[in-house]
Every structure is written in C-alpha cells, then in structure tokens.
C-alpha cells in the first residue's frame, strides 16, 4: 500500500531524511522508531504529501503522491505530530468538517462522525469547544479526524503522546485492530508499543534506516538475547563457566551461549548443572533481549559522536 523509494529531504544544508526506502502492505503495522530529530516526522510528512521530497518517490495505494496527490490523500488518514485542530470549533463541528472535506455527506457523514467518536472515546466532550479540552482529549480529537473516513492507510505521528495509561492501552489495541485490514505506520518513543502493536519496526537515525525487522528480530540483536539468567542459592561462577561466558549480577548470574542458535539447550544445561550441584533454584530464564538496549546501542554512538 505504501511504497517509499530512496526518499531524501534536505533543509538548507541539513539532510533530515537521507535515502529512506521501505514498503508497508495491508495487514501490517510498522513502528517507526528513532531518536529526536532522526527524521521520522519529516518522512511521514512526505508520505502524506505535506512537504515535497527533495528526491525520491512515495506512492500510496499505487498512486504517486507527487503526481496524483488527491488520489493518494483520499486513502490516507493522518495524525500530525502536534495533533492540530481548530480551537474555536466543537469536537463535533471539527469532525463534521473533516468528514465533509473527505467528501462524506448526509447519513454517511453522521455515521462516520459517530463511529470516530466511539472509537476515540469522545462522546463525553462532543459539544465542548476544543480550546477548553485537556491535552489528551485534543489529541484524541485529532486522532478521530484521521479515522473519520475509515482510511486504508494510516499515518500516525506519536499517536499515544500525552495520553493517560488507560488511553495508551486503548489506542494500542485500536492500532493493532486497524492493522489487520489496513496499512499502518506509527512513530513512537515508547518501545513497549513495538511489542504491543507492531508487526514490524524500523529504527531510523539521522535520516537513515539503521534497523528493520519484526520486534522479535530486533530484540534478538540485543547482546543479552539468548543468555540464561540464573538465580539460585549455592550457584558459583566457576562451575557455570563451563557452559559459556558468565556475568555476575547483583544476586544472579547471566550465562551467555557460545552459539546463539541453541538458546533452549543452554537453559536445559544450566538446569541440569544446578540439579547435579544441588543448587536451590529460585529463577531460571532465557532472555529474549531488550529493545531499549538494541535501540541505545544502534543510535547512541552516533548521537555521542555528533556532539
């Protein structure tokens, strides 16, 4: 549904987006990660046709955004980063306006507004003026606007920003549900959301894609992925060293496998060793790896070097 080819955006002398290519199909939820200023919002603005790329192509649903902008835009629902809306309008007025611009009339418009209001839990503030809403409600109003025409492609720039934990949870569920039938791209700084909602994630740093894979694949890039955590009375590092490299933690040990592919074997071997030695096991776990560790390792050296 979304196809991006070698996208570049240059602001003055600065390359905000530097040769980004990816594709998102129907049924996929793509998480867009990266440090501040990495170029996430800029990329999304180019997908939605708000800013023209310096070079490269974007097509949405087979329509080139530069050549057939209206056809492409019709397919897209977009939540901009700042979640803008018209403060002098009521929530209902604003959503009706958005529906009207999307070409919905009469019954269709009424139904569309009703559905978007339900989905974003806005019924309690429906006739309130937007400038009197709290930040989270303003954000949800703009999200509702993006969903109003039940678009096939959703571009959401930090959709859970400013929401309370319950609403964050609801929005993640909503994204996952929408992702079954649509192509969704959303950016976030909350790494748990990758696990909670994405089928695939891209990490972008200084305008370039530095990692691209399923959440599990990304986590497997972590140094601790596949290692076995052991917490047991009587355990000793010397004995464990026979199985792999051992790291002594606070009260536990972490054993790194010699060969990453055989993670399950290592856990079994550690359990057998504990049994032989008569250690009293309190906890034994194979680590999946941690996204935040991967994220930091991939993006931090660059940020540090830049300074």
């Amino acid at each position: 549904m979304i196809r991006i080819d070698n996208l570049v955006k240059t602001f003055a002398a600065k390359r905000a987006v530097d040769g980004v290519s990816f594709a998102v199909e129907r049924g996929e939820v793509l998480g867009f990660l990266g440090p501040n200023g990495a170029g996430k919002s800029t990329t999304m603005r180019m997908i939605t046709g708000f800013i023209p790329p310096s070079s490269g192509r974007v097509s949405v649903g087979g329509h080139d955004v530069a050549e057939a902008p209206l056809r492409a835009k019709r397919l897209i629902g977009y939540l901009p980063e700042a979640a803008p809306s018209y403060p002098d309008m009521t929530v209902h007025g604003f959503l009706s306006f958005a529906a009207e611009l999307r070409g919905l009339d009469g019954h269709a418009r009424k139904n569309a507004v009703h559905r978007a209001v339900e989905r974003c839990f806005l019924s309690s503030v429906l006739h309130q003026s937007i400038d009197t809403l709290s930040k989270g409600y303003k954000h949800r109003t703009c999200l509702a606007q993006a969903l109003i025409h039940d678009p096939e492609v959703l571009i959401l720039d930090e959709p859970t920003d400013g929401l309370d934990p319950n609403q964050k949870h609801e929005v993640r569920n909503l994204i996952r549900e929408l992702g079954r039938t649509k192509a969704v791209v959303f950016s976030t700084h909350i790494l748990e959301e990758v696990d909670a909602a994405c089928t695939r994630a891209i990490i972008i740093d200084r305008g370039r894609i530095v990692a691209n894979g399923t959440p599990a694949e990304l986590k497997a890039m972590s140094a601790t992925a596949g290692a076995v955590m052991l917490h047991a009375q009587g355990a000793s590092a010397e004995k464990l060293a026979a199985l792999g490299k051992v790291e002594a933690l606070d009260r536990a040990f972490r054993v790194y496998p010699r060969d990453k592919g055989a993670a399950g074997d290592l856990a079994r071997a550690v359990a057998e060793l504990a049994g032989r030695e008569g250690w009293k096991l309190e906890m034994l776990r194979t680590e999946e790896g941690q996204l935040d560790e991967v994220f930091r390792r991939i993006t931090l050296p660059d940020t540090v070097n830049k300074k």
Binding site: R45, F50, L70, K73, Y78, P80, A82, P84, S85, R102
Partner: peptide, 14 residues
C-alpha cells in the same frame, strides 16, 4: 502557527 495547515493540506483537496 496552530499547525492546522498540515491538516488542511493533507486533506484530499488542492
């Protein structure tokens, strides 16, 4: 200033 320009110009209108 309010950022609604981004909303308006990403709607399916010219």
């Amino acid at each position: 200033r309010a950022g609604t320009l981004e909303l308006l110009l990403t709607m399916p209108i010219t």
